[in-house]
Design a protein around this nucleic acid. Structure first.
Length: 269
DNA sequence: GAAGACCTGCTA
DNA sequence: TAGCAGGTCTTC
């Protein structure tokens, strides 16, 4: 569930909570595959005793910059999230890993579907420029190298890092471009519209503290268990059959690259 | 590309 | 009970 804005919200909240500067004293791994390919024992050994110097992010990866050789790289995948507790450790039902930090702060990595991953490394591999930082030139260059469908391209993290299913649909709607439109057919104006749409949608998501939809179990909540405020601003995702906010025609739903895709067949060409 | 794998829990 | 989910990997 979490895309760039949700990860960024969590990063900011972790920083505000004073996680950086603390020593990781004890590491608990409750679901071994969370730390794959390392064994829990090796992972614990490598992480325990390190200081969290800074928290950064690239795309959907949260980066705990450590004082050792490695950084702790975390991907929340579909249902991952963090919460904090203080004092005596009480494990929650979906906790997959817990870092006990200096000062009695416990950082719980919660992940009902167990897809989330914690890795050790300098930096996550295979990512293109971050969606909050990509410039128009860079965006255009990559766009011009391919003739793939636009939705598939936006979801490709090696093209642009951080866009997921919700924000891809929202960006394509804002740009008035059909999700299966081929990159090679875009006019200069359309390329620019897409660039602005992607950056605007992502930035709006960050400003509003991320997107939560419905109240399902896997739904995104921030560090404090609160829903993101962007859900009510979503114009197409999850609104199939409802009227387009621009033209009033019902929104269409299809599958593109095996992902649910909602768009306005009238407005998006 | 497409399809399956990885997983659980909610909704219809 | 079947179907679906905000993500990525691997294997055709």
């Amino acid at each position: 569930m979490p895309e760039l804005p949700e990860v960024e919200t969590i990063r900011r909240q972790l920083r505000e909570a004073g996680v950086n500067g603390r020593v990781i004293e004890t590491v608990h791994v409750e679901w071994p595959r969370t730390v794959d390919p390392l064994s829990p024992a090796v992972f614990r050994k490598q992480v325990a005793g390190c200081t969290i110097e800074r928290l950064s992010r690239h795309g959907k990866w949260l980066i705990f910059e450590l004082d050792g050789e490695n950084n702790l790289l975390v991907h929340l995948r579909m249902t991952g999230g963090f919460y904090l507790s203080q004092g005596t450790l009480k494990k929650g039902p979906h906790d997959r890993a817990i870092l006990q930090l200096s000062g009695g702060l416990n950082l719980h990595f919660r992940d009902p579907r167990k897809f989330g991953r914690m890795r050790l490394g300098a930096f996550p591999n295979g990512l293109g420029p971050d969606a909050m930082e990509i410039g128009p030139r860079q965006f255009f260059q990559t766009l011009e190298k391919t003739n793939r469908g636009l939705k598939a391209l936006l979801l490709d993290q090696s093209f642009i890092a951080g866009v997921g299913n919700i924000y891809a649909d929202e960006a394509l709607f804002e740009a008035r471009l059909h999700p299966e439109r081929r990159a090679g057919t875009l006019s200069e104006d359309e390329k620019l519209a897409l660039y602005h749409a992607v950056t605007q949608v992502i930035q709006a998501g960050v400003r509003n503290g991320g997107t939560s939809l419905g109240d399902g179990q896997g739904n995104y909540t921030d560090l404090n268990g609160n829903s993101g405020g962007h859900g009510e601003r979503v114009k197409v995702y999850g609104r199939a059959g409802q009227p387009c906010v621009v033209c009033g025609n019902p929104l269409s739903q299809t599958k593109v690259t095996q992902r649910t895709t909602v768009f306005c067949a009238h407005c998006q060409k």
